[in-house]
Simulated assay, not measured.
Amino acid sequence: MNRLAQSKFGVDISNLKISYNLKGQRAGIVNPAKKEIRLNKELCLKYPEKMTNEVLVHEVAHFVTFSISPNAKPHGKEWKYVARTLGLDNPKTTHNMPTTKARKVKGYFYKCGCNTYKLSSIRHNRIKRKEAEYACKYCGEKLRKA
């Protein structure tokens, strides 16, 4: 792929750092300033061929596009041209591999006279710091920890 990027676009990708520390629902991401591509380790282990032939090429296409046209849209016509030239037959903006979320969102349960609500950590902490109070949208009663 380096020869192709070099001959077609004059961009050397041999010094691109590839790390496998991306978590969550993204398959890959590129940071052109750091010359780094981060790939989702879980997806690389489960779908090595798809990650190599599609996601890696997708991210390299972003790097090459940014190198030759820094103001190009992330998935615009320039990127699509570069992606096709690098071997992606049908460049897509998203993947369809099943993923797990990077973090679990903890909820805090609060109740009133008629209902129970799951509040976010942010709202829970505002209540604890006495910065906010929340009331039931039906009975109007102040929510209290369940």
Rank of each mutant, 00 (worst) to 15 (best):
M1K: 10
M1A: 12
N2I: 12
R3Y: 12
L4P: 00
L4D: 02
L4G: 01
L4N: 11
Q6L: 13
Q6T: 09
F9V: 08
F9E: 07
G10H: 11
D12R: 08
D12T: 11
I13N: 04
S14L: 10
N15A: 14
L16P: 04
L16A: 06
K17E: 10
I18M: 12
Y20A: 05
K23Y: 11
K23A: 08
G24Y: 11
Q25E: 12
Q25S: 14
R26E: 04
A27K: 07
I29M: 13
V30R: 03
P32A: 08
A33N: 10
K34F: 09
K35A: 11
E36W: 06
E36D: 01
I37P: 05
I37D: 03
L39Y: 08
N40V: 09
K41M: 07
E42I: 13
L43Y: 04
L43E: 03
C44I: 11
L45R: 05
K46M: 02
E49I: 10
K50Y: 15
M51T: 04
T52W: 07
T52L: 15
V55R: 03
L56P: 08
L56C: 04
V60L: 14
T65L: 06
T65C: 05
I68E: 03
S69D: 14
N71A: 12
N71G: 09
K73I: 04
H75V: 00
H75T: 01
H75E: 00
G76T: 07
G76I: 04
K77F: 10
W79L: 05
W79R: 02
K80P: 03
K80W: 07
V82H: 05
V82C: 07
A83M: 08
R84H: 10
R84A: 10
R84T: 13
R84K: 15
R84L: 06
T85H: 05
T85Y: 07
G87Q: 04
G87M: 01
L88I: 15
D89W: 05
P91H: 05
P91I: 09
P91T: 08
P91R: 08
T93G: 14
T93V: 12
T93E: 14
T94R: 15
T94F: 13
T94V: 09
H95S: 08
H95A: 08
H95K: 07
H95Q: 14
N96W: 12
T99I: 09
T99P: 10
K101R: 13
A102H: 10
A102L: 11
R103P: 01
V105A: 13
K106H: 13
Y108H: 15
Y110V: 02
Y110Q: 04
C112S: 04
C112Q: 00
C112F: 00
G113Q: 09
C114R: 00
C114W: 00
N115S: 14
T116Q: 08
T116W: 03
Y117W: 01
Y117E: 05
L119E: 06
L119R: 09
S121V: 04
I122R: 15
R123T: 02
H124R: 10
N125H: 11
R126P: 02
I127K: 00
I127D: 00
R129F: 01
R129Q: 01
K130N: 15
K130A: 13
A132V: 01
A132P: 02
E133Q: 12
E133Y: 00
Y134A: 01
Y134D: 01
A135C: 14
A135R: 14
C136E: 00
K137N: 09
Y138I: 12
C139K: 03
C139A: 06
K145R: 14
